[in-house]
Design a binder for these strands. Sequence first.
DNA 1: TGCGTATATTGCTACTTTCGAATATACTGG
DNA 2: CCAGTATATTCGAAAGTAGCAATATACGCA
Lengths: 111, 111
Amino acid sequence: MSDSLRQFKAEVFQALAHPTRIAIVELLRDGPLPAGKLIERLGIEQANASQHLSVLRSKQIVLNRKEGNQVFYSLRDPILTEVLDVMRRYFQAHIAGTLATLGEMEREESR
Amino acid sequence: MSDSLRQFKAEVFQALAHPTRIAIVELLRDGPLPAGKLIERLGIEQANASQHLSVLRSKQIVLNRKEGNQVFYSLRDPILTEVLDVMRRYFQAHIAGTLATLGEMEREESR
DNA sequence: TGCGTATATTGCTACTTTCGAATATACTGG
DNA sequence: CCAGTATATTCGAAAGTAGCAATATACGCA
């Protein structure tokens, strides 16, 4: 595979490599949401959320469309949720060992 | 989903967020390889490869086993290749935009 | 036009990542 | 034990990333 394609893959992973941005993608699973709604659900600073949305936009993981006063965000391609689904299986298969190793995460994530 | 689980996901994505590390995972698709073989195929500095392997090890994406003089690396879970496969479909679906973006990047860089 | 709401950008600082060079560790054969 | 090969770690500089506070931009409405 070409270097530049691998570079591009790496950039997509990098874009997903932050808890807040993963949360955003998960929130968009079921359809578009305005930025304000995302900020409310994320419970973080507006500027911070906007920066993370900017990262996802720049890698074209999300699309945005203006609607009056608001900006609606949506997943560019639902295939990305498949990535997260496969990852979920990975995490489920290995979370026990990971918890033991990282030692720090508690017991709340049983779903 | 819990914050710490999302944190964990983010760390795995982060571990994959480098072209060299993606190349390593792809090289390990078909079975274990000794570090030396990986270095040879990657065509990079030994120290650099070792650092990337260290990242993959620390996130338990690869496993290593000593065999005499050498260290064999393998994918901890082949499910990861599924992630890359889904990603491949994602890239194929958007290849036109991707190549356009890459072209722009190259043009930028050559200025 | 001017105000209020929604979102984006900028400036700054702290922290992390990457790389090559140098060095260290581990194992093997003689 | 010693030399040689294989791999890992450490160091320092450059580049990139994250978060906050402040500020800017865009829109709708009176």
